[in-house]
Design a protein around this nucleic acid. Structure first.
Lengths: 170, 170
DNA sequence: CACTAGATTCACGAGATAGTGAAACTTAGA
DNA sequence: TCTAAGTTTCACTATCTCGTGAATCTAGTG
């Protein structure tokens, strides 16, 4: 087969893998600063930046220079938090991993669900300090704000979806 | 002086410090799970749950059973991320720490600013993979979504402020 | 100007986390 | 049923983070 990777003249649209790799590492590192496990971040961004939107374990392992065990761990995490899915390509033994279509909406929605958890805790706190006390009022305002977000954010996402379906320009 | 802390019968509205402490630990632990440094979370919630809204280093140290060094570190973090301020009470040598009035609006606004940082990275990524490629389109959609949030969230916070100023009930 | 309450810094140790290599497991294909 | 490609698990290690205690620094007060 003549499908050599290092063809640069024939394939005019060949992408600069060095630049892509730099992006992957940079963006992954910013995500990691925001609390993402480092390896999971790297795998995630590598998938985002893949033209096909999906890569095999071996490809990830080679591209990021990590062990297949690390890929396995990262992928498990990403599947768990619902941003990546595993596909088995028929007629092959290898899995390919793909980022969900509308990841960021998913991520945002998921983060909002955490608030429900917080709110339960807050209600207990308001009971403990007494709703009529200054502390109670402060905690109640916090709770109200979170409830407000819980209502507003889904609307916001809906607006985004609508805007998307109409076409890009605003 | 007769200002003993352990007066329970005289002060009818005395709060159940055990219950409050339980709330502090629980809520702090959920915040910690969301990426907050553990000690900073405990200090933050203790301040939230304090009737006066402010506590001294010694009070925090005693209430949370942590060293003053830990208080110092936690407070430095909280001031840095702009949720707590330091006040010196006149005629005394000790500092008191206070949570900002509208902390959560602040926190949310601040988190949005992180997006600007991400977006810069994303633009570089789009360049690297080529805007017209599938990967480029995927990254562009991500960028667009973040820009959208950057516009919408301030509006959302404004709506909240307005609702607050009108009075509680919606 | 000396004293001291109070805050901060620093070196250290404990505990958690993440990634590796090797072994074990699973399963498509012969 | 056997073989081997591919994935996962597990024990181990390196690294990082966080809180402590002790020493140091800062600034009111007599």
């Amino acid at each position: 087969m003549s499908s050599d990777v290092s063809q640069t003249s024939a394939d005019a649209a060949a992408r600069d893998e060095t630049a892509v790799s730099r992006f992957v590492e940079r963006f992954a590192s910013t995500l990691a600063q925001a609390g993402f496990p480092p390896m999971a971040a790297r795998v995630f961004v590598a998938l985002l930046a893949a033209d096909s939107g999906s890569l095999t374990s071996a490809e990830l392992s080679e591209q990021l220079r990590i062990s297949s065990a690390a890929v396995s761990g990262a992928v498990r995490f990403l599947i768990q938090v619902n941003v990546v899915l595993r596909e088995r390509e028929p007629g092959s033994r290898r899995d390919v991993y793909r980022v969900y279509e509308h990841v960021w909406q998913e991520v945002l929605t998921r983060r909002m669900q955490i608030l429900d958890f917080w709110n339960e805790s807050l209600r207990a706190g308001i009971d403990a300090v007494g709703a009529a006390t200054p502390a109670g009022r402060r905690l109640s305002e916090t709770l109200d704000f979170f409830v407000f977000l819980d209502q507003e954010v889904p609307d916001m996402i809906a607006r985004w979806r609508e805007r998307q379906s109409r076409g890009a320009a605003s």
